[in-house]
Design a binder for these strands. Structure first.
Lengths: 225, 225, 225, 225
DNA sequence: GATGAATGAGCCTTCATTCAT
DNA sequence: AATGAATGAAGGCTCATTCAT
């Protein structure tokens, strides 16, 4: 027996149905794959929370977009808020990859800063869905704010500072300069990599171009003491 | 003052507004009452929207905080969304005051940039309620995003550029440097004046100190060509 | 304009509508009469809780039966449970009328007991909706159980004892006999006036006949010491 | 033992049962497992239905308390309601043991009645879980009400009457007196053995003491004609 | 005009039941 | 045969909005 489920955007249902019958004759919607389903829900929630906001997103929408039942959200994550937490945790755990592992050191300080900003601006853009969500929630929930502060700017600034320190030999860089520059770079990447292109609708290429130019100014400013 | 209301289903605002002014010849006491109540509602909404988010704020809360009836929101602003628009319009109209009117030119470029950043960081903090609301809505509504882009970074960067150009005589500043620096300063003020202290919970004084230090680096970077 | 509401069991809507237009042209469902509406909700809830049980009764049903919106239950009574409490309180306050005010003393002890049981059995029947609800809830909630104990058997037994004491002159009735008889009468009225006819479906007349016969036996049992 | 299941849409139970027994020749160990699990489910359900009510009890709770899977309820009993019926049937079949088998006749009428009430009050207390459930359901379902009436008061009153008739030799007891007294005793045992201690929270000992005192009054009332 | 009582659409959540494993 | 993952139909409740007063 085959319980036929009617998807709203059913285009080539016939084909998939045929295939289904041929291979397993099992309703794929009911196949058990908890891990995959959890992931689908987290992904759907990330997108929807980011674009409509947390409050305006309904659990029905999330279920629909993830291609599974609404009730699963409550079974797996203990409700909508639990899903939000899962979304955030999930992202963090995937972001353990650090600057140091993905970016070779540059010969010159100027090239180093340019490279850092270029890479980080792209990374911000990639993370735009998650950043949108984080910024939104951080505005409403001090808990999230604290988490965002530590996971975001603070962590990034430290990583940047670490790299800048490698160029101390050739330049006179005191600790304060390094700290200041690191925080500035972190802030600029956030604005030119995320806020401007992903929130305010600036042209992405243009935004990045400005960022790279700023890198030059900062590099020059640091070299001159 | 003119609180411009932007309803979606509204074509010629000018006409209806003119008509309104022409015909409504109610006694001035009443008008004052109404104006006061509108202002109270707008103020209450600004605070609540900023702290709880737009969706999570109920019209009843707004009415209660403004000390008047819930129904008035619909009579005056045609619903919750209308009130949101009024909130944004109201703020803009009060922010016509420009940099040039409040800030004397400085003798040196370094002092100029330091002064600009210091002043603008404070201004961002003052406007934090409005900025929070704007950022939130800009993330969800492209219309608001466009408005925020033009009213915010673009406008600010132009104002900053104008001031930097005054120092061309003493320094070799090409147009691109000026544009880059202006945008960088604008971005840094947003982060160190608003995002960090008002959203992420950084200590305000500390945040501003970093900003002022960055000013120095940028000034040096510009002077060296 | 006339917002026509479609009742499910609309029989003679035409008539009522015509009448409406003729007299006030005001949707009667929206007329403001909070007291009446609260009463209607309490009444509807009493009936439905009694017949379907508390859990199985939906707030929607209650609203429909009371002829008003579901949301009112939450506005007036702070939810379904609040309505339950209101139902119980409401009944108590109407039951201040005591035995003494409605029943003249009888000449003989036998007649007194017969009269007491007859009257109380009828009263139990009248209160059957409320009793059903009380018994149901008392089984699940110790708070309600305590309330039911004090408001029910304990109070009733005291009132009965008071009346029996009036016949001490003619009979040798010690305190224990009076207490025992009072409690027995109270218990028998509960069973023959409520449990048997209203819960178990015994024929009501027959049930009462047995009760009255028991009265005789008890009266004889008391007279003989 | 045969747990008779009363499904609404079920015609010839006997046939299907017979067939079941005939065909299912599974190994005895398995059968024992199943029987044990059924019993565990019935026991768990009795407790939970009695304490939380039928509606408020979830099948998951029952499964958990019985130490087996939720789905078994549907496999064994065809759903939650089927389990309820099984619970009731199961109890009845264990209650075939009658007064006569457990209680010797007394010499005097007074002693007989005292003994009857004492025994039956204790029995009601033992059965409190089942009685709670029965009373609850009888209030909502006429079918259960009918069943409860016949299995409960009617059956009990008959058994009591039978015993009282043994004392006719020494006392003038007409049929009506016997019927009246039997029903009264049955009712009093229900109240003093179950309703008061198990539902309303009266102290159990005290409740029984009153019952025994009532026995005396009734006995005296019967002896005097 | 101002008020707040009333509405009803829709949200999050629960749970009996089904069914792939 | 047993499990528990998955479903979907409600249920209680909230809230923007309407409208009698």
């Amino acid at each position: 027996m085959l319980t036929c489920r009617l998807a709203k955007t059913q285009s080539t249902n016939m084909q998939s149905l045929a295939k289904q019958i041929a291979t397993t004759a099992v309703d794929p919607a009911r196949r058990r794959d908890r891990a995959a389903r959890e992931q689908a829900l987290i992904l759907a929630a990330t997108k929807l929370f980011a674009s409509h906001g947390y409050e305006a997103t309904t659990t029905r929408e999330i279920g629909a977009r993830a291609g599974c039942s609404e009730g699963l959200i409550h079974r797996y994550f203990k409700g909508k808020e639990g899903l939000l937490l899962a979304v955030m945790s999930s992202h963090i755990s995937r972001r353990v990859l650090e600057l140091r592992e993905h970016l070779p050191f540059s010969a010159s300080l100027e090239e180093e800063i340019r490279q850092l900003m270029s890479w980080e601006v792209d990374r911000m853009w990639e993370d735009r869905d998650f950043l949108r969500l984080t910024v939104q929630r951080a505005m409403l929930d001090p808990k999230i704010a604290r988490f965002a502060r530590l996971e975001g700017p603070t962590r990034l600034a430290k990583a940047i500072a670490e790299r800048l320190r490698h160029h101390r030999n050739h330049h006179v860089l005191d600790d304060e300069d390094i700290e200041t520059a690191s925080n500035a770079i972190s802030a600029l990447c956030f604005v030119f990599g995320f806020m401007r292109p992903a929130v305010l609708g600036y042209h992405r290429k243009e935004s990045k171009r400005v960022a790279v130019n700023v890198a030059k100014i900062i590099a020059r400013g640091l070299q001159l003491t």
